[in-house]
């Protein structure tokens, strides 16, 4: 009996730690990524997987009781609802007209803040007035 309890506790702790890793990675990505869509890419998958793993760990800890059935319903609901809400937010943002971030944007702004180097980018010289500090409030990303 004691061996079974120890094995159950070890499985619970391992699943909790893996879930905590995914949740922390999703949070760091949510803070650090440069764009709205890539932030949604970080949170939409990492949070679903991490919280599902933490709830599975709590099911393993709780055993086969009525409480575990409730947590199983909660996991099923999270697995349905979280991608649906992520898709709804992304579609609303796309319909409003939020443009995705490209890697060229930062480079062009960085080149325009320096004195040279914007000879080849004549199509983007409208950005030359705003530096990197105007990145946050500019176009609502």
């Amino acid at each position: 009996m004691s061996d079974t309890t120890t094995i159950t506790n070890v499985i619970t702790v391992v699943l909790l730690l893996v879930g905590a890793f995914f949740v922390l990675a999703g949070t760091i990505g949510f803070v650090r990524f440069p764009d709205f869509y890539s932030r949604m890419h970080a949170t939409g998958k990492c949070d679903t997987l991490g919280e599902g793993l933490m709830l599975v760990a709590l099911i393993v800890y709780g055993g086969a009781t009525f409480v575990s059935v409730k947590i199983l319903f909660l996991i099923m609901f999270i697995l349905f609802a979280n991608p649906t809400s992520t898709h709804a937010i992304a579609k609303a943002a796309y319909d409003v007209g939020l443009k995705p971030w490209r890697k060229l944007d930062d480079r062009v702004e960085w080149m325009n803040t320096s004195d040279t180097g914007n000879a080849g980018n004549t199509g983007n010289t409208g950005n030359s007035g705003e530096g990197r500090s105007g990145e946050d409030g500019g176009d609502g990303r």
């Binding site: 949510f30 932030r39 949170t43 809400s85 609303a92 609502g140 990303r141």
Partner: peptide, 13 residues
Amino acid sequence: GPGIFNRIIAVNV
């Protein structure tokens, strides 16, 4: 976060 959509994601998360 700039814009309203980042705030909506933050509330969801």
